[in-house]
Each structure stands twice: as C-alpha cells, then as structure tokens.
C-alpha cells in the first residue's frame, strides 16, 4: 500500500491538473461564443455568392472556352484533398475525426486506381496524415489561431490552389472540415471545391426569373466570381473548424475535469483508509503493550 505522503502528493497533483482543465474549459467556452458568431457572420456572403454563381453557371453553356473552374479538366484521375484541421491538440477527437474521413475517402479512391494528393491546413492534420501518406502531401499550411483568420489569409491559399488547378496538378479538389452543429456534435464533412459543383435544380434562388442585365457578360462575371468562391468556401470551412475546435475542446476539458474529480474522490477514500489503518495498528500496539504489563 502506498504511503500516506505519496498519496497526499498524488491528490495534490490531480487537483492542480483539474484546475488547469477547468480553466481551459472556461477559455474554450469564451472562445466558442466568438467563433460561432464569426461563423454566423460569414454565412450571408457565402450564401449570396453561392446562389449567384450557381444561377449564372446554370445559364452559361459549358464548352471548351468556359472557365476551367467551372468545366473542370475533363478528367477524373488526380484528386486533391484539402484537409483543414487546427494547429493545436487537446480538443478531443476534433482533428482525428477529420483526418479519419479524409483517410477513408483516400483509400476508397486509391482502390479505384486514382491518385490522391494532400494539401493540409493545420499541423495536426499534416502530422496524422504523414504517417500513412507521407509522399502524397504536396503542401502544408500552418494557420495559427483559427479564430483570428482573416479573409485576406484565406484568399492567398485560394489563389495558390487555383493556380495549381490551372497548372493541371489535379483534376478534382475536395475540402475536408468539421461542420459545427452544436457544442456536442461536430460532423466531419467533405465538399467538392473545384471544379464548382453546380446545383442542378433551376430553382430561382435569387429571384432571377426576370430578364437580368449583365455588365460585363455572364462569362466574364463568372470568371471573376469563381476564384472568389474558392476563397469563400475556404473561409467558411475554417470558420466552422474554429467553432468546432472550441466546442470539441470544451467538451473534452469538461470530461477531463470530471474525471479528475472522480479520481480525487477515489484517492481521498484510499488516503483515509490508509490513515485509519495506521491509527488502528498504533492502537493495537499500545493495547498489546499495556496488556503485557
């Protein structure tokens, strides 16, 4: 049985761990509020742009002269997985879930004989993917604090990706991130980033049924909006990730705090038992000594 002093030290150490996890939970809760606000604030722009792009795209006939971001390269051989994770751990299964989805999809595509390349955002995603796909990672980005990302940062990545697409480095790009449903649920999600997936329904989303004038014409507007759409999707993914990361961290730290509490209770009981045992032994010794006289 552990000595009283060792037990006391153990209890104190668990207590300070609990203090840390409790503080981290509180920090995550505060950051979560800000992150969800940011995610919601970026929604109107993304929705408008998406509506406009798909309504113009459904009007333009796809031909060899149409922008590559819309028509694609005509092949389906090389897939690029843009895997958005975070730089920091201690957020439960947040990063692992995203990576697991990406890995499963990659293996499925590889089984069909396609080539899969990776473009990672976030240290954690890169580290986990490099275990199995070391040679396939073509570029990695370390975004730092996801909550502080601006549109300008994301725009650079979008331009880089578009340039790689134009240079025929890949045929299809998918974006992986974690969608924030609520504090307890974050769903790893995959969307097609390039070429733009045009929703087939002719639904009149923006009220464009009337004859609309275009300045300049549809193709030119589309050519300008498509690269912007890539950046907006990236921003949206990272905003969702920022919220998911904090939500996941909050839950993980809440669990850790509770586990530490359970452990302290268990250790305290053990400590008291040991103390009792020591006292009993002492008493027996004294009584035995008195009887011997």
């Amino acid at each position: 049985m552990a000595s009283l002093k060792a037990l006391k030290m153990r209890i104190n150490s668990v207590k300070s761990t609990q203090k840390i996890t409790k503080a981290m939970k509180m920090v995550a809760a505060a950051k979560l509020r800000r992150a969800t606000e940011a995610a919601e604030a970026s929604r109107p722009y993304a929705e408008r742009l998406e509506a406009v792009v798909s309504s113009i795209a459904s009007k333009v006939s796809v031909g060899p002269q149409s922008p590559k971001l819309l028509a694609g390269s005509g092949k389906n051989d090389v897939h690029l997985f843009v895997v958005a994770t975070s730089d920091k751990g201690l957020a439960g299964a947040f990063n692992t879930n995203i990576v697991r989805l990406a890995r499963r999809q990659a293996e499925a595509l590889k089984a069909e004989g396609k080539t899969v390349k990776f473009y990672t955002i976030g240290k954690k995603g890169r580290d986990q993917l490099s275990r199995t796909f070391r040679g396939d990672i073509i570029h990695s980005i370390e975004p730092g604090d996801l909550g502080k990302l601006t549109f300008a940062d994301v725009q650079n990545w979008g331009e880089d990706l578009t340039a790689r697409f134009e240079a025929d480095e890949f045929d299809v790009a998918h974006l992986f991130f974690s969608k924030f449903d609520n504090v307890l649920t974050q769903t790893p999600t995959q969307i097609q980033l390039m070429p733009v997936a045009v929703t087939a329904d002719e639904g009149d989303v923006v009220g464009l049924s009337a004859t609309v004038e275009y300045e300049p014409d549809e193709e030119e507007i589309l050519a300008e909006l498509l690269p912007r759409n890539v950046a907006v999707q990236l921003l949206r993914a990272n905003r969702e990730n920022a919220a998911s990361e904090q939500g996941s961290k909050m839950t993980a730290m809440d669990n850790a705090t509770r586990n530490a509490g359970d452990m302290i209770n268990k250790l305290t009981i053990q400590y008291n038992r040991t103390r009792q045992a020591a006292i009993t032994t002492e008493l027996i010794e004294i009584i035995a000594g008195a009887e011997a006289l």
Partner: peptide, 16 residues
C-alpha cells in the same frame, strides 16, 4: 462599365 444609380424598382441586373 460605368457608374450607375439604383433607386427602388430598378430592373434586375448584375455587375462586377
């Protein structure tokens, strides 16, 4: 392609 003023009831249009 030039400035344009928009008042209520403007005909639908899109422009960069």
């Amino acid at each position: 392609e030039g400035d344009f003023g928009v008042l209520e009831g403007h005909s639908p249009m899109m422009s960069t």
